[in-house]
Amino acid sequence: MTRIAVLEFLIHLLIFFLGAGIGSFLNVVIYRLPLGISVNNPKRSFCPQCKKQIPWFQNLPLISWLSLRGKCAACKSPIPFRYFFVELLTGCIFYAIFIKFRGSWDYRLDWGDMVILYWIFAALLIAGTFIDIDHYILPHEITFGGLAVGLIGSWIEPQLMGEFIRSRGLVASLAGACIGATLIWVIIQLGKMAFGRIKRKFQSPEAWTISQPKEDEPPLFEIAKESFTWHDIFFRPSDRLVMTCTELKVNETSYGPCQLELRENAMKIRPESGAEVQHTTLEDIKKLEGQATQVLIPREAMGYGDIYLLAMIGSFLGWQAVLFTVVAASVLGSIIGVVPRLFGKTEWSSKIPFGPYLAGGAMIWLFYGPQLVEWYMNRLVVREILDV
């Protein structure tokens, strides 16, 4: 093996472990950012269970998880496999981006800007995906921060948009972001019209409760063996949870048949007796429960975080990628929705928000999108020719 071959092998190995190291940092972001914990303080990673800081020699990407057999060295509590998976996934994606976009190997860094920008893009998508899966949110630090990087990056490296002039690269990036945001906004509005509420009627009154098991978590609404978090119910200021109650108990006060209307921070009670409607806030309510014969629950197929995510994707990949990403995300969602049903595990797919599918569609475009579009268009042309 020549020196050049050895050097290239070491470079490839370095790129993979660089990605794995970034994946280790992304695990910190995924855990801390939704909880409001600074990613810099404490600077060293710590065990979520015993809170003991992890020394550097036990925090090596991939190697430490394997050597510790997925357990904390201090308290022996399990370390989720996701930590290892994120490091492995990031390493593989970083390496794949390096291979695809570095160009011919000539020891120059003229490919460096493209690769680095796509590395940043991939890291943002990975962090956003796992945060969205865990918490059903897409933090602005990721979406807005990524949008800014995409716009600036398209000016620094206009080839990101397939352009050679910086101003045209920036305009194309801005157009991609605007088209992405507008497209998802339209889809969300159509989704509200078609699937904007869940209506349940019960033959006999069903018990329901609203409680907050943990102070740092949103309240939980439970009825007829179904449960919904406050974030599941209230997306917009206009959202209302409406129940026809046979009984209602607010703290120590009991009501007879009435209609209960709940907003995110307020409540209305309309007794059937025709008494005056009572208004109250939810701040002083410790106990809220009752029996209901009908419930109307607002819901959202997608959150507004998806608007910002697709805008970010458009700023990095352009408007064509936005259209492809939405279609690919829908296909991915359909596949992942159907496969678990075949094994009787419908709850697996129902717990995945749309953000990860958008991220998956964007990564498919990054590596294979134009080729897939060309293949599909060629098949359409062939089919038209055969039909003629």
Rank of each mutant, 00 (worst) to 15 (best):
Ala148Gln: 06
His12Leu: 14
Asp113Ser: 15
Ser334Cys: 06
Glu206Gly: 03
Leu124Thr: 12
Leu117Asp: 07
Leu262Gly: 00
Arg200Asn: 10
Ser45Arg: 12
Tyr83Val: 02
Lys225Phe: 10
Tyr118Gln: 13
Lys351Gly: 04
Leu310Met: 09
Ser77Thr: 14
Arg236Asn: 13
Thr293Val: 15
Val388Ala: 12
Glu217Ser: 13
Ala181Lys: 01
Trp230Phe: 12
Ile37Glu: 15
Ile188Asp: 04
Trp185Ile: 02
Asn251Gly: 11
Leu26Gly: 06
Gln212Thr: 14
Pro78Tyr: 11
Gly150Pro: 01
Ala5Ser: 09
Leu366Met: 14
Ser77Pro: 03
Ile11Glu: 08
Trp155Asp: 01
Val250Trp: 02
Phe121Leu: 12
Leu88Gln: 05
Ala359His: 06
His140Tyr: 00
Ile116His: 02
Ser104Gly: 06
Tyr304Thr: 10
Leu33Asp: 02
Thr325Cys: 11
Phe221Arg: 07
Cys258His: 05
Ile4Gln: 12
Ile11Arg: 07
Glu347Tyr: 13
Tyr376Gln: 05
Leu33Gln: 11
Asp110Ala: 07
Glu347Thr: 12
Ser104Pro: 02
Trp208Ser: 01
Asp110Val: 11
Phe235Arg: 08
Asp284Met: 11
Met161Asp: 06
Gly103Ile: 12
His135Val: 03
Met243Gln: 06
Asp284Asn: 15
Phe17Met: 14
Leu372Trp: 05
Trp65Ile: 06
Glu264Ser: 14
Gly19Thr: 10
Gly91Glu: 04
Gly112Met: 15
